[in-house]
Design a protein around this nucleic acid. Sequence first.
DNA 1: TATTTCACCTAACTGGTGTTAGGTAGGTGA
DNA 2: TCACCTACCTAACACCAGTTAGGTGAAATA
Lengths: 207, 207
Amino acid sequence: MSVVKKSAEKVEVGREGILNAAASLFRQHGYGGVSLRAIAQAAGIKAGSIYYHFPSKDAIITEILDAGIVKVHEEARACVEALPAGAPAEAFLRAALRGHLRALLEHGDYTSANVRIFGQVPAAVRDANLSIRRDYEKYLDDLLSNLQADGAIRADVNISRFRLLLIGALNATLEWFDPSRGGVEALADDYADTFLNGILTQTGANK
Amino acid sequence: MSVVKKSAEKVEVGREGILNAAASLFRQHGYGGVSLRAIAQAAGIKAGSIYYHFPSKDAIITEILDAGIVKVHEEARACVEALPAGAPAEAFLRAALRGHLRALLEHGDYTSANVRIFGQVPAAVRDANLSIRRDYEKYLDDLLSNLQADGAIRADVNISRFRLLLIGALNATLEWFDPSRGGVEALADDYADTFLNGILTQTGANK
DNA sequence: TATTTCACCTAACTGGTGTTAGGTAGGTGA
DNA sequence: TCACCTACCTAACACCAGTTAGGTGAAATA
């Protein structure tokens, strides 16, 4: 792609290399814990060179934040759209949930950096990210609202509040998820079961 | 208490004043975003004076982290123990949940600072906080296990995984909760409903 | 009253921060 | 061949970080 071999051992790092290194470091150490010199070293260049590609540190963060949500949004949408025609209503939520978790836990320094650092970033950076974030929230709200309109989700469930609960629970998996102990798919199914049916033994006497 | 009036306008700031100021700032700006000078100014003293009370910045964070969990743990336990004798099984979960949310959203810079900065703090500080954290997790696991043993919670629910889901969802409320739009109690009830019964319209055909 | 203790302040230190100006080796196009 | 562009590097800038040594005035203690 944009990685071009030069003489001997020289390889271009470029925007991509800087972003990848930065996303990985931000994910691990948070916003304040990562310096431009650390990013540069991880990418294999010197700190000053970063300014050839980016006007400021905040510009890097902004780009990582945006890419993170876009990735989650795309993955969730792809999972939903891959559903066979006539899939049961609850399969839609399961699919979106699986996509969200996959993007978060598998493909992801950008997605996980987003979750980790969004709360620590300067207000200006956060604001720049907000519209993309809202797009994804709207996508989920619409999906859930449709399920509710179809009668699959109870009428007394507050959709946008449930969406907040859902995203909160999903994003928190980042703090403890260990791929060596059960895969993402199993986790997604397990979470979906809980959200859909609750945890109570069903006696028919509920509510 | 330990705040003693001195001559004219002088009031002692002390450990407490520093901790309060620090907790509030950490909650707002994250770990890396708060300097000792900022803490000192918020507390009303000079940066160097902090070292009369604390040996390092990390010592302050450690204490805030610990206090935060202790507070949540105590509040949750108090809510559970305030239950009338013979309360229904699900009331236990509802009570713990309400206590957790109350500590988080009402009484709290320490509790909310804990949630916000735990992921960004140096490994050594995090380790120091771990045993207190585990105590609370064990408390919740035991409570949930008892409910499961009594048959209130379905046997196929993985308790510790549900606990992770629960805490994740509860802590995430910090990012969006606005006390002016519905109180903590209503939120707690709403979340409990979702966790207990799920969101699906109950047709009796589940599973 | 003299001495000690307490809770702070001042001023500095080292080292790290984001950022900038100017330089340079290698490839490209005329 | 030669000017130009790209993607970097070097070296420095001003500033801010955590931390420390030594000092100060008021209160507590003797």
